[in-house]
Amino acid sequence: MHSIDTLIIGAGALGLACAARLAEPRRDTLILEAEGLIGSHASSRNSEVIHAGLYYPPGSLKAELCLEGRERLYAWCAQHGVAHRRIGKLLVAVQQDEITRLDALAANAEACGVHDLQDIDQARLGELEPALHGVRALLSPSTGIIDSHAYLQSLLALAERRGAQLVLHSRVERLQRDREAWIASGHSAGEAFSLRAQRVINAGGLFAQRLAARTEGLQAPLLHLCQGRYFGYAGRSPFSHLIYPMPEANTAGLGIHATLDLAGQLRFGPDVHWLDTLDYRVDESLRAPFAAAIARYFPALDAARLQPGYAGVRAKLSGPGEPAADFLIQTPADHRLPGLVNLFGIESPGLTASLAIAERVARAL
């Protein structure tokens, strides 16, 4: 049976960040990905936003790793030539009764260590974004956008330069402890395989719990699938910043916000739609509810220019009506299984936090 030092399961942002951090020439590192492309799920189906770290409970992993990851990610992009831009985000109180929530958000951000928010009054808001309706806003200059595909490729390139190997179409279906190592078994390009690894990182994203349920000695947390759908906006964008309304009360999302890609193309989303099974469809019938939500802060919206875009699915540890759950980085100290780290519930801001998460994983192993 082939033996390696480190097995990384999943070639999304988390798995590739771990590979880039852990790979070294004297240690065999193998990345196994079930799909035919890297980043086929959450890592390529998101807003491509570098988050500043405003919304999360102070002291939570999301708050800490978002701030650390944000700075690591900006530095990484500069060092490795990954296209990105600190475009800035406006958090908007559309009506007077939302100002209290805007102030609470500012206080939360300050408690999380975000100290650069700027208070924007209505007159200044009109100067910054003439098409935007709002009575007050906060400007987050640390928020940015990134070419997520280029980022994934840069992580893989560094990991491979350090000796890591990526194998696609390879699904790990079971993990068993064998004395001082782990036996990983599954199928690669239709052929059964087994290999021995000293260290295993389960970075399977939406499929991490499935593998955890088939890992000897491990209890898998419950997975909740939450779909977020996006609509594109044809033609020139009226905005030069990212636009976020106040987070929706009692939902898992931040509201249908406006984001830009690096080419200046505008898109709206995501919404919140709970699923029983994985589904990436975006139905034309969503145009009307999207238009109604967007028109609150963009009154000149031309609904005919809204076009169904794409959908992502969040791997959440909390369900409908429950408080948002934190990231779960399950280390040997947590489950008493040497050499195994599981990454559960790494939804937003997972892309922003990916390099910081990889650092935590490295310390745990």
Rank of each mutant, 00 (worst) to 15 (best):
I8G: 06
A11H: 04
G12Y: 12
G12D: 02
L22E: 09
A23C: 04
D28E: 13
D28P: 03
E33H: 05
L37C: 01
G39H: 04
S43I: 06
N46E: 05
N46D: 02
E48K: 12
V49D: 04
H51T: 09
L54W: 02
Y56H: 11
P57C: 10
P57Y: 09
L61E: 04
A63P: 07
G69W: 02
A78I: 00
Q79L: 06
H80E: 07
G81F: 03
R85D: 14
L91D: 00
V92F: 06
A93V: 12
D97F: 03
I99G: 05
I99H: 11
L102N: 03
A104V: 01
A106W: 13
A109H: 10
E110K: 15
L117A: 09
I120G: 15
G126C: 13
P130N: 14
A131F: 01
L132P: 10
L139Q: 13
S142T: 13
T143V: 12
T143R: 06
G144Q: 14
G144D: 11
I146Y: 01
S148D: 15
H149M: 09
H149W: 07
A150I: 04
Y151L: 15
L152P: 11
L155A: 06
L155E: 03
L156D: 02
R161L: 08
L168Q: 13
L168R: 14
V172K: 01
R174T: 13
L175I: 03
Q176M: 14
Q176K: 15
R177G: 08
D178W: 02
R179E: 15
R179H: 13
E180N: 15
W182P: 12
A184M: 02
A189I: 00
G190N: 08
A197E: 05
Q198D: 14
R199V: 14
G204H: 02
L206W: 03
F207R: 15
A212E: 04
A213Y: 00
R214K: 13
L222G: 08
C226T: 03
Q227N: 06
G228M: 05
F231V: 10
G232T: 13
A234K: 14
S237A: 14
F239A: 05
S240R: 15
H241V: 08
I243C: 08
M246G: 05
E248I: 11
G255A: 10
G255V: 10
Q265L: 06
Q265E: 09
L266C: 09
G269I: 06
P270A: 09
D271I: 08
D279H: 06
V282W: 04
S285Q: 11
R287N: 09
A292E: 15
Y297C: 10
A300F: 07
Q307K: 15
G309I: 14
A311W: 05
L317E: 08
E322Q: 15
D326K: 12
A333R: 15
A333V: 14
D334I: 09
D334K: 08
D334C: 11
H335L: 11
L337V: 14
N342K: 03
L343G: 08
S348M: 07
G350I: 12
L351S: 07
A353G: 00
A356Q: 07
I357E: 02
V361M: 01
L365W: 11
